[in-house]
Nucleic acid binder design. Structure first.
Length: 645
RNA sequence: GCCGGUGUAGCUCAGUCGGUAGAGCGGCAGUUUUGUAAACUGCGGGUCGCAGGUUCGAUUCCUGUCGCCGGCUCCA
């Protein structure tokens, strides 16, 4: 038999005997490469390192530096987990076990539940199997034979998957002598490669993600190439826990959720209230600066309105139930759009008036299923910085540019420098679930893309992800520890103008239907507040901090001078806390630090005599003694500039 | 809504194999006048989430229910 020509990434060609594996070639190149190798890429397709090559090909050895290799690695770790589970709990049925961000999960079906102790045992068993360097072996099996085999193995979910998805023949992978799983692969050569993982939690998960199906037990785990990466990740989890807005919200007395009042309903305490006021004031001012009008609409409205808008039909399961009043049925608003539309409709519009931009910080109520609420991030009552723009087709591009520019401004103001944009399109209506004329979709989608181009925003296009009533662009922000949060959204709506028969008089004297754009930048004020808490870990920039300056006299002898300092700060509009308690200054400083107050003014006899203050910053510590007026000028300037540190 | 976990003082948590509970911090009172992250002493404070059941007796065991936590589904 003639030899195979294998082309390597550097262009060199190796001549090898048929049946040679990528691992053989790697070993031939260097033992270090063989050691770092995780998986191979043959003609662009992922291959097990040990799989024999059968034809001329290009070959790339993927090592721990490759993201694709990490996925394979995690997938192999998932198999290791499943093998450990089957050894300890042989009656368990296997679901699926894919790699995910940061690790993998594996779904199992078994009569009793995994306990935290079980997780420890499973992990210990994984370690045991790992140390044996069990090999992953790829096998081909005919589909019919496979179905019979997995039926005999009593693996009903695997049988279902094979029946639905498998090729004929399909691949399966063994791990050691006992474990076998239907799997596309590839895998690492053996378990000695799998070096750093940790089982994290068990959770219920529906088979195939459908809540009509049986609920399985999902083991979540994290897996990394090295112990260090694993430790870093676990450390990051700890860090995220420390930043949890529910924890900080309690520590800093920002907000609460009251059992007596109901879940998903937020109480802003005085300190949270001050911060929220900053967000809202900034947003309202920005509305006015950018040519929006501010409106207010009622919280309950007749059901007839929700029938006209369509919400009573397609959104009813998310709405609070109907209230029967004397004259009619009423319902709490789940969205602000119909209210704004009524304002638009209450009068005639000439093309000269457009665009009309109606903005509101509108509080909406949505029925969220119990078990879905989460602090401030997922609630039943929340306030949208919501606006609706009614405009002519010729105006939509500029309007989208304005919206996105506004979104960028919002992000920058609140200290976010990184973000991602996603355009959701109708994919030429292929799926048939969309409303509106094709030309409207094309025009709107074009406007979204062009607006991004004009602003230099890089946007990913997600086909067939649009709402049925129009395409949209979502902006997601990246926070201080690299997490992604859904924030702003700008959406076209082709349905509501039609349902409400909106119109304007055009240059031609005829009636036309305006385009409608729905947009929210914070998204929800509550959620944005929660994101801010986590982003800053409670250490809000001075302009947002509930208390901006703490004045701390060392003894009561300085109280009088300290009071004048406090008064001048208050006069300048600075939020100041005067701690005149007869406590040690160390104690007062500690309290101010714990409360993340940006500035502490320590005032002793020396400062009082000289009209100075000793400035301590919560992060930079002691900044030294300065004349009070100098500090006042500095802090008021910092506040006015909305510096985010 | 579903699966699992959980609920003890304002907060963080311990405890009771069934005999109505304890610490630290915080609060209050007094003492301490203090120089850049916790002074000292004393005193209060809990129908052990709620409702039933078992029991002579339940915070503890059982059932139901509500909230919270981790997920699933859904989503701003």
């Amino acid at each position: 038999m003639s030899s195979l020509q294998v082309t390597l990434p550097d262009g060199s060609v190796k001549s090898v005997a048929p049946g040679t594996s990528a691992l053989d070639i790697a070993t031939g190149i260097s033992p270090r490469l063989a050691d770092a190798a995780i998986v191979a890429k043959v003609d662009g397709q992922l291959y097990d390192l040990t799989r024999p090559l059968e034809a001329d090909c290009t070959l790339q050895i993927l090592t721990t530096k490759d993201p694709e290799a990490l996925e394979v690695y995690r997938h192999s770790a998932a198999h290791l987990c499943a093998a450990a589970v089957l050894e300890l709990f042989p009656e368990t049925k296997l679901g699926i076990g894919p790699p995910i961000e940061n690790g993998f999960y594996y779904d199992f079906d078994r009569p009793t539940h995994f306990t935290p102790e079980d997780l420890e045992r499973i992990e210990a068993k994984m370690n045991e199997l790992q140390a044996k360097a069990l090999t992953f072996e790829r096998r081909l099996i005919g589909k019919q034979e496979g179905i019979e085999k997995y039926t005999a193995m009593n693996e009903p979910m695997k049988v279902e998957l094979i029946t639905e998805k498998a090729d004929d023949p399909f691949t399966e992978y063994t791990l050691g002598p006992d474990f076998i799983d239907f799997c596309r692969g590839p895998h690492v050569p053996n378990t000695s490669k799998i070096k750093a993982y940790k089982l994290l939690s068990v959770a219920g998960a529906y088979w195939k993600g459908d809540e009509k199906n049986k609920q399985l037990q999902r083991i979540y785990a994290t897996a990394w190439f090295t112990k260090k990466e694993l430790d870093d990740y676990l450390h990051k989890l700890e860090e995220a826990k420390k930043r949890d807005h529910r924890k900080i919200g309690k520590e800093l007395d920002l907000f609460s959720i009251q059992e007596l009042a109901g879940p998903g309903l937020i109480f802003f305490h005085p300190k949270g209230g001050i911060i929220r006021k900053q967000l809202e004031d900034w947003m309202r001012d920005a509305y006015l600066k950018r040519g929006y009008s501010l409106v207010y609409t009622p919280h309950v409205m007749r059901r007839d309105l929700w029938k006209t808008s369509g919400h009573a039909n397609f959104y009813s399961e998310n709405m609070f139930s109907v209230m029967e009043l004397d004259d009619a049925e009423y319902q709490l608003k789940p969205m602000n759009c119909p209210g704004h539309i009524l304002i638009y409709k209450d009068g005639q519009h000439s093309y000269r008036d457009l665009p009309v931009r109606l903005g509101e910080l509108g509080t909406v109520y949505r029925y969220e299923r119990s078990g879905t609420m989460h602090g401030l991030l997922r609630v039943r009552g929340f306030t949208q910085d919501d606006a609706h723009i009614f405009c002519m087709p010729s105006q939509i591009e500029d309007e989208i540019v304005n919206c996105l520019d506004f979104a960028k401004d919002t992000l920058n103001t609140f200290g976010f420098t990184q973000y991602k944009a996603e355009i959701s399109t109708w994919d030429n209506g292929a799926s048939g679930k969309y409303d509106g004329e094709p030309e409207m979709w094309h025009l709107a989608e074009g406007a979204l893309r062009k607006a991004c181009d004009r602003l230099g925003i890089e946007a990913t296009v997600i086909p067939d992800e649009a709402a049925f009533y129009g395409p949209k662009i979502d902006v997601k922000l990246v926070d201080a520890i690299g997490r992604l949060w859904q924030l702003s959204t700008v959406q076209f709506d082709f349905t509501l103008p039609k349902r409400f028969e909106l119109e304007y008089t055009g240059e031609d004297g005829k009636k036309h239907q305006p385009y409608m754009v729905h947009r929210a930048l914070f998204g929800s004020v509550e959620r944005f507040f929660g994101i801010l808490v986590e982003h800053y870990a409670g250490a809000f920039p001075t302009w947002l901090a509930p208390v901006q300056v703490a004045v701390l006299p060392i003894t009561s002898g300085q109280n009088e001078y300290a009071q004048t300092v406090v008064d001048k700060l208050k006069d300048a509009g600075v939020r100041v806390h005067f701690d005149a308690r007869p406590e040690k200054v160390n104690f007062k400083i500690r309290e101010a630090q714990v409360q993340q107050i940006p500035y502490m003014l320590v005032i002793g006899g020396r400062e009082a005599e000289a009209g100075k203050v000793s400035v301590r910053h919560r992060r930079k510590a002691d900044l030294g003694v300065v004349p009070f007026e100098e500090f006042l000028a500095m802090v008021t300037a910092e506040i006015a500039s909305k510096a985010t540190e």
